[in-house]
Design a protein around this nucleic acid. Structure first.
Lengths: 180, 180, 180, 180
DNA sequence: AATGAATGAGCGTTCATTCAT
DNA sequence: CATGAATGAACGCTCATTCAT
């Protein structure tokens, strides 16, 4: 999986051959098929692992913020997301926007968005902010943030993470009707 | 190009062969190479055309809104975007998220986002709203909207376009610091 | 060998893998190579066993017919052959007509034909019938009978064994110049 | 097809690779798939051609014998069959006894046996001889003859075709109840 | 004696691309 | 301009065989 990840990042999924993966991992070609049934299968495994890691990081950050501080939790969510994505936006895109997109179910998006939707709804229930539809807003926020990180990553020379985070926190606040 | 578009939608880009395209277009295989240099080349052409059409629709809607009515223009932008994407979100995804990703330059995103950023900045200059960085907000808004449309398209049975548009307008207003 | 036989019958020799055989026999793959050197080796063993069983059945039937009754012995040969083949014609064909053909030596044919040729020659010596060349006639008779059984097995819904046997006895009689 | 036939004869069907066939025919590997869909497909084509040629030879010989001379026609059938098979018994065996045997329908056997059965029945109708069941006897005769030719081909140093033919005619006569 | 993970040569098949007609 | 037969590199995948445990 390490070899596959490296190669996918270097040349994309399509052009990477099984042979290259096994060469990179210093095993024989047949060995690959002992553990994976196809290239898509490795992709699945990488997705799974990526999603778990990402969600874990976000959850930790949000949980560490004191209960009751809803704006703080939302800011923590944004900051953790930005940090994670800055580190691995290319891997994310390769895994989740690769040619035959998976069932759209089981996308990383889903578990991360589920979690965010939960957070937003909890804020609503606690009277912290007011929004029409938590899931809806979660999708908007997630995609907006993701897009911005991607935009920034491919555009600027060096990313000013601090300013980026501050601005995204501001946009998240506005999305729930708060002022930055 | 018509045949290619249909096939890409039906089975994805990768699995579509040149032979299928030429069969579908009722020409010989060699003829393909008189007009395109490769499959990626057709993809490029389809992208170009798609982006032009999309931007044209948005521009018209925005222009038709009376000058000075900034919220109206933003709402028009959102409504036109939703309408266009609802009709062709799958084609968009196939064209712009297929592997191997294009140069990140020349993405449809760019010309549409450029336009939106212009609109936002104009609003700022006119004192209609206040935002930190127009381009930044434009990227956020564009991706948020796109994500929501995609989410809605793959999820619900039938899409309630009116409600969807209303909610997205609201989120766009909030993103520029206005109340829905 | 039991597992191999079952699999050969179910899917043919070629498509059967060593892995399937060892799975079917509930042993590890390596164990196979402790007892056989290759798939052809199992095939050989199955052939040997098949030929022994078949010849034993025929010999018994022929021996049980009183000495001197040559037509009776020939009829017994035919009846026993029909009975045996009806039960296992598919196995026979798989074992003896599979590619690559064995050395043509060691074919079941040989030991069964040898025996039949002996019987025919004994009849000649005893003045029971008159034929040109015993071995020659034995080959003809053996193959004719085998072909008929195969023909009948693959063709009809249900085989009328009694009638089949009677007719084949008749043909065997004719082949040695006797009337049925 | 010529190259395939040669290779099948030299090394058997299984061990022959598509690559060898195309090399032998001095074309590229892909060209093979322009005309055949698989190795089995070539096999089919060779079978077809073989059966046509064989049957044509037999029919000619039988037809050339004066009508009314039933024993002559049967002798002609035997002689033509022997001659054809002696020339190409190995090819026949490779084509028709290869591993995954075709549907047992469409076997050469069928069209040749059909023809022979017709001849035998015509003889019965004309009162030339008496047999129980024409098709049945045809199968017996065909397989007997085929087996003998095969036996002789693989056994002796040099085949005495004249004596072989005479003896097989004799056996065919006996099978219809005539004396040689 | 038994195991089963590892091997890697070799297979059938596909398909973008060329070019003589 | 258009054709489509021919190409052949490249791929995913299988499976008989080995051998350290």
């Amino acid at each position: 999986m390490k070899a596959a990840k490296r190669l996918f990042l270097e040349q994309g999924v399509g052009p990477t051959t099984i042979e290259q993966i096994t060469s990179g991992a210093d095993v024989a070609k047949g060995t690959f098929y002992l553990y994976f049934s196809s290239k898509d299968d490795v992709l699945s495994a990488l997705r799974e692992r990526f999603a778990q890691d990402l969600l874990a990081g976000i959850k930790t950050a949000v949980t560490e913020t004191p209960d009751g501080d809803w704006k703080g939790k939302l800011a923590a969510w944004a900051a953790a997301s930005v940090a994670s994505y800055l580190e691995s936006i290319r891997l994310h895109d390769i895994l989740f926007y690769g040619s035959p997109p998976p069932t759209r179910e089981g996308l990383i998006n889903n578990i991360v968005i589920d979690h965010l939707a939960g957070l937003l709804q909890a804020g609503v229930d606690a009277g912290a902010w007011s929004i029409d539809d938590a899931r809806f807003t979660a999708v908007f926020m997630f995609n907006g943030l993701h897009g911005v990180v991607e935009f920034v990553s491919t555009g600027e020379k060096r990313v000013n993470q601090k300013r980026l985070t501050r601005r995204l926190e501001g946009l998240c606040f506005r999305a729930v009707g708060e002022t930055p």
